[in-house]
Every structure is written in C-alpha cells, then in structure tokens.
C-alpha cells in the first residue's frame, strides 16, 4: 500500500494509539480495515481505508496483521512531512516493511516492524438511525472537550433544535458551552450543523472524547451521532479514502 502523503497514515496512527496500543489490521483487495476496543471495553474504534484511496495498492490474499500502534508511531515519527510511504508484507513473513521516500527522491528510509500474534474479537456494529447528527469543526470539538475536562470527568451532551449544549460539573463547580446551529453557512467547514429527529441528553466520560480528538488532524470536521441509550459515534473522515469512527458507551443511571 503506497500513499503519496505518508502524513495521512501518521495521523491515523496518532489518532488511534492512545485508545488502543495494538490492533489487528485486516488487509484485503478492498483495502485496510481495523476494529479494536480500548482496554476497559468502554470505547471501540473502526477504521476503513479503501484501496482506491492509495496511490497504489495490491493485496494478493487476505491478511490479518497484528501491529503495535505504539511501535508504528515511533517509526512514523522519523518520517519527513512530505515523504511518501509504502507499507508491504511479504507472503510468509512475520514482519511489516515501512518504506519512506523523500519528496525529491534523495532519501530512502526502510524499517521492519515485527508483527504480533493478536486474538482479534470482532464486534458487529449495527447500522443505527441516530436521533441526532451534529457536524462541527473538529478543532472546536477538541477545544470543548478540553474546556469541559477542567470542570469534571463527565460531559452531558444535550441537543435541542436551537443547538447543542455540553456541560460538566465537579468539585470546582460546573460549566457549560452552548453552540448555536450556524445559519448563514459561508464556509461549510466552520459550520455547526445539527440534524435532529428528536432531542437527546447523554452523559459520556470526557477523557475518551479527548482521546478521540487525537484524530482531529485527519479532518477539519467531526461528525457526532447520538441516540438515547446508544453509544456515541464520533467520526473523522479520511479524505477520498475512508474514515475513523469512534464509539463510546454512555454513562447510565444506576
């Protein structure tokens, strides 16, 4: 699999590696997918990178590759910001080869990462017709998570037809941020757009939302989908290629 802009792959890895340290990458002719839960089984991440999004891609037979995201992240930190990246696995090998090429083709770096033997439990994610779908700038969502984490470790997300309200309370007191739906949409990327079938009010652990925001560099916008008593879906699109979707179980009344 070859990417002209290796930085896209680095952003994917940086977006995942805090939530999951290692994961099984499923490679097929259609592309690369990954599904993994965090260690406490509170959150799940689903990654899709379609083959047509790569500059070149070939997969002669399906492979499940156990990869340490922490190690992969360390290797990708050596990549130049404009480098292209090629990832390859030879048929019967127990390692993955990461090749980086500088833009002006004068520097070639090659790394080999040992593959891991991971037992991957796969969960079925049902298609959900969410009560509420919010689109907002990913930087704005990152900021809100950071600000709310000052006040408490849980954030209540309430949606109404006017907008969406995030609130947190703790020992210091409480705080809330209300975003109004954007009316005059000049730049789609900066708009707050709320599609609401019915109002929802759900509580989530803010530290997971903050971990999801590590994937914000992938996309200027984030999608948040909510329904009562249903995991939140937090989606960052990967341009022309796929998406990273995080699912977080809500905190529920005893």
């Amino acid at each position: 699999a070859r990417l002209l802009h290796g930085s896209i792959f680095a952003k994917v890895i940086e977006g995942l590696r805090e939530l999951v340290n290692e994961a099984t990458w499923e490679c097929s002719g259609n592309g690369i997918t990954l599904q993994a839960m965090d260690s406490s089984h509170v959150a799940l991440v689903s990654l899709v990178m379609r083959s047509e999004g790569f500059e070149s891609y070939r997969c002669d037979r399906n492979m499940s590759l156990g990869i340490s995201l922490v190690s992969m992240s360390k290797v990708l930190k050596t990549m130049g910001k404009d480098d292209s990246l090629t990832i390859r696995v030879n048929d019967d090998s127990d390692s993955i080869i990461i090749a980086m090429e500088s833009q002006n083709q004068d520097k070639f770096a090659d790394y080999e990462l040992r593959l891991m033997d991971l037992d991957s439990e796969h969960l079925g994610i049902p298609d959900t017709d969410y009560s509420c779908a919010i689109k907002m700038p990913s930087s704005e969502f990152s900021r809100i998570c950071r600000d709310m984490s000052i006040m408490g470790d849980s954030v209540l997300i309430c949606t109404t037809k006017e907008g969406v309200k995030f609130s947190a309370k703790g020992d210091l007191g409480q705080g809330s941020i209300r975003l109004v739906q954007t009316t005059n949409i000049e730049k789609e990327e900066e708009a707050v757009i709320i599609e609401m079938k019915e109002a929802v009010a759900l509580t989530f652990a803010v530290r997971y939302l903050s971990m999801f925001c590590k994937a914000a560099p992938l996309s200027p916008q984030v999608g948040l989908s909510l329904s009562e008593d249903t995991p939140l879906m937090c989606e960052f699109k990967i341009a022309e290629m796929g998406h990273v979707r995080f699912y977080l179980a809500p905190k529920i009344e005893d």
């Binding site: 839960m37 089984h41 969960l123 079925g124 249903t230 995991p231 977080l248 179980a249 905190k251 005893d254």
Partner: peptide
Amino acid sequence: KKTQAAISSFFTKK
C-alpha cells in the same frame, strides 16, 4: 449517580 456502560453490551459479538 451514573455508571459507565461497556461498549460490548451494545454491539453483538460475532
């Protein structure tokens, strides 16, 4: 008081 639910209780094991 609210308790954190597990994600696996919402998704089906394959």
